[in-house]
Design a protein around this nucleic acid. Sequence first.
DNA 1: ACCTTATTTCGACGATTGTCGTAATTGGCT
DNA 2: AGCCAATTACGACAATCGTCGAAATAAGGT
Lengths: 232, 232
Amino acid sequence: MVDELSTRIAGEISLSENPSKTMKKWREIFGLSQTELARYIHITPSVVSDYESGRRKAPGANTIKRFVAGIMKADAERGYPVVKSYRTMLTSLDDDGPVVDMQDFKMPLSAAELCHAIEGDMVANRDKGSTAVYGYTVVDSIKAILELSSDDFLNLYGTTSQRALIFTKVSYGRSPLIAVRVSRIKPGVVVMHGIDKIDDLGMRIAERERIPVILTVMEQKRLLERLRGCGR
Amino acid sequence: MVDELSTRIAGEISLSENPSKTMKKWREIFGLSQTELARYIHITPSVVSDYESGRRKAPGANTIKRFVAGIMKADAERGYPVVKSYRTMLTSLDDDGPVVDMQDFKMPLSAAELCHAIEGDMVANRDKGSTAVYGYTVVDSIKAILELSSDDFLNLYGTTSQRALIFTKVSYGRSPLIAVRVSRIKPGVVVMHGIDKIDDLGMRIAERERIPVILTVMEQKRLLERLRGCGR
DNA sequence: ACCTTATTTCGACGATTGTCGTAATTGGCT
DNA sequence: AGCCAATTACGACAATCGTCGAAATAAGGT
C-alpha cells in the first residue's frame, strides 16, 4: 500500500501540467511545512519553496523520488495516518455504504472554482471562496444518517479533510450541517445537493463553523461527472 | 483506466533506481521500437536510445510526461491492447479463478535471475537464461485445466507475454507444457512448482518451443513472497 | 506593535538534461 | 556475404535543474 501510494504520488507529479502545485498539494495532504519537509530531504527550505512556486518547471526524477521518500518517511514516523486514510478511501468505495464517490483532484481547486464547476450557489461564508479543496466525498445523506457512527465520519475524508463533503438527497439543509457540527474534523467545504436554499438553523451553523456551503440542484449523474472532470 | 495506468507508469519511472531500464521495459511492453516511439514524441531515435541506455540518469518531468503520452497514443491507435490487458490483469486477481497471483516486476529480470530467486532448477533451454522477464502469473494448474478455455489463456498475460507463467500443483510436468504448446501466445519462461524433474514428453515439448523451463519445490507461500520481492 | 516562524524571492554557479547530427555497431533476413 | 533497419555511442551546445545563502515578505500569536 505504501508502494502503491508512492507510485501514485510520483506519477501525478510527473504527469501534472503544473508539478509545482501538485508537490505542494501532496506536502499539505501529509501535513508538513516546507521547513519540516526540507529537514526530511536534507535541503534548505528555500529550495522547497523554489520547487513549489514553479521556479523549476520540470523537476527531475531524483527530485521527485526524494520528495516522495521524504513525505513517506514523515508519515511513517507518525504511524502512517495518510497511508491509512488512503487505504480507507479505497475500501469505502468497494462496499455498499453511504459513500457514493470519493476522489482526490489532480490539481487543487478553490471553493469558488468548485462552486462554478457544479453550477452551485455559495450561500454561506463567501469570503472563504479561496479555500483550497484537494478532493471530494459524495455521501448519500439518508444512508449516512442511518449508518454512520461518529467514528465512521472520519472515514469520509480519505487522504485529507481539506476536501468537499457533498451530501445528496438533502431536504432542509440542517441534518448534514448538524453532523458536521458534532464531528471533530471539519471538511473544507460542504455541498448540499437537492435543495436551493437552507433554513435558518442550517445557516447559523454554517456561519459559526466558518465553512463555505454550496447548494446545487444539478442532476446527480451530471454532478458526479463534473466532479470527476475537475482539477485536471 | 488510461489515467490510472499512465500514473502508474510515470510513478514507476520516477521512483525507479534505474529510470532508463524502466522506460525501456514499458516501451517494450507496448511493443514499440525506439524508432517508432521517437516518431510519436517528435525526437530522433538516438535521443530515445540515450534515455534508455542511461546516458541521462534522471529524466525530467516533461520527458516522462511525453514518454507516457507517446506510448499511450500508440496504444490508442492500435485499439488499446495494453490498456485492456492491464484491466484484465486487475480483474482476474479479484475473482476466484485459477490465477493465484499476477504482478509486473519494477525492474526486469533475466530468466536466470528469476531461477536463482526462487531456488529453482532450469531444466530446459539453459542457453536462453538471459531472456528478459517483465512479470509473472501464478496459476493453479488443476483449476486451469478444468476452467480455462483457449481464449482464457490469453488473460494470463496481463500487460505482456514476456513474463513467467508459473504452474502450481504440478504432477508430471507435461500438462502445463501441453497447454503452452497449443496456446497461440507463448510466455517468456515456464515455471513448474511441485516437481523436481519432468518426464521425457515434457522435455521434448520444452525443447521444441525454445522456452526456458524452471522447476522448484519451494513452499508455495515462500514462493509467492519471493516473487513479490523480485525486480526491485 | 512586536516577535517569531514560515515562505518567497532571487542572484549565482556548478551540474545535468535535452537534443541534434553523425558515425559505428548490432541483429535479422536473404 | 551483403543489405537494411534498429540501436548505440558520442561530441557539442543551449537550456534547465538543483542548491545555497541572504534578504525580503507574510502570517500567526501575544
